[in-house]
C-alpha cells in the first residue's frame, strides 16, 4: 500500500530525512520509534503533504501513485489520515460540522452519497460507542478547550469516522495517563483490519504493549537504523536509545 523509497526531505532548508525505505502492506501495523529530533514528525508531515516539507530525493508511492504530485486534501480523500501530535484548535467551528464536512467531501470523491445531519449523527454515535468515547467530542468546537487526552481521543475518533486506508499516528500516545492510553490503544486495535495499514510513530514503546506492531523501525538522524519485529521495541525499552550508537554502526556496515 505504501512504498517509501530512499526518501530525503528538507524543512526550512535543513535536511531532516536522509534516505528512508519502508514498505507497508494492507493490514500491517508498523511502528516507527526514535529519539527526539530523529525526524519522526517530519516523516508524518511529508506523508500528509504539509507545506514547507520538501522531498529532495527518493519517492513515496501510495497505492502506486506518487504522493508528491498530490495536494494534502487529495491525499486525505484518497485515504491517508494523519492523527496529529498537536491537534490545532479551530474556534467557533463545531466538531460535528467539521467532521461531517470532511466525511462528505471524501465520500463524494469516492462516488458515495453524502450523509445528511441525521445520518451523520447516527454514524458518529455508533463510532463513539465502538470506541467507548464521550459524545462531547463532537459537541464542542474543534479541539477547543480539550485536554491533551481528549485531543488524542478525538483524533482516533475522527479516524474511525473517516475510515482511511492508511493511518499515520504521530505520537498519539504522548501525554496520556494509563487509562487514556488504554482507551486510545483500544480504539486503534478496533480499527485495525485487513484492508487498512497503520504507521504508528512513537517515542516510547508503552503503546506497543497494547497495540502489537507487525514491524518496528528505529529512526535516528533521518535514517532507519534498525528494523525488526515487535521484540525490537522491547529491546529499545530495555537499553534506551543509547543502543543506537552501536546499531548505527551495524546499519552503516
Amino acid at each position: 500500500m505504501l512504498e517509501i523509497k530512499n526518501l530525503h526531505a528538507r524543512v526550512d532548508g535543513q535536511q531532516i530525512l536522509q534516505g528512508i525505505d519502508i514498505s507497508i502492506k494492507a493490514g500491517e501495523v508498523h511502528a516507527i520509534m526514535g529519539p527526539n529530533g530523529s525526524g519522526k514528525s517530519t516523516l508524518a508531515f511529508v506523508l500528509a503533504g504539509r507545506e514547507g516539507y520538501e522531498i529532495t530525493q527518493g519517492e513515496v508511492l501510495f497505492e502506486g501513485r506518487n504522493l508528491a504530485e498530490m495536494k494534502p486534501e487529495e491525499r486525505a480523500r484518497e485515504g491517508i489520515f494523519l492523527a496529529f501530535q498537536y491537534p490545532v484548535e479551530i474556534p467557533g467551528v463545531s466538531g460535528m460540522n467539521f467532521l461531517k464536512s470532511a466525511l462528505n467531501v471524501t465520500r463524494k470523491y469516492r462516488g458515495l452519497s453524502e450523509l445528511d445531519a441525521i445520518e451523520f449523527l447516527k454514524l458518529a454515535r455508533e463510532k463513539l460507542k465502538l470506541l467507548g468515547m464521550d459524545e462531547k467530542l463532537i459537541q464542542r468546537a474543534v479541539n477547543v478547550g480539550f485536554s491533551g487526552g481528549e485531543k488524542k481521543r478525538s483524533e482516533v475518533f475522527q479516524m474511525a469516522v473517516l475510515e482511511p486506508k492508511l493511518a499515520v499516528l504521530d505520537e498519539t500516545d504522548s501525554g496520556l495517563d494509563i487509562d487514556a492510553l488504554k482507551i486510545v490503544a483500544n480504539g486503534i486495535n478496533t480499527l485495525r483490519n485487513p484492508d487498512r495499514a497503520m504507521l504508528i510513530i512513537t517515542h516510547y514503546q508503552r503503546l506497543l504493549n497494547y497495540v502489537i506492531p507487525d514491524k518496528v523501525h528505529v529512526l535516528a538522524e533521518g535514517r532507519i537504523v534498525r528494523s525488526g519485529g515487535k521484540e525490537l521495541a522491547l529491546e529499545l525499552e530495555d537499553k534506551g536509545y543509547a543502543m543506537l550508537d552501536s546499531a548505527d554502526a551495524n546499519a552503516a556496515a
Binding site: E73, F98, S101, A102, V105
Partner: peptide, 16 residues
C-alpha cells in the same frame, strides 16, 4: 493544514 488533512479544500477550509 489540519482542515486539508481531513480532505477539505482550501476554500472550504477558509469558509469554515
Amino acid at each position: 493544514f489540519y482542515c486539508k488533512q481531513r480532505g477539505l479544500s482550501a476554500e472550504d477550509a477558509v469558509t469554515m
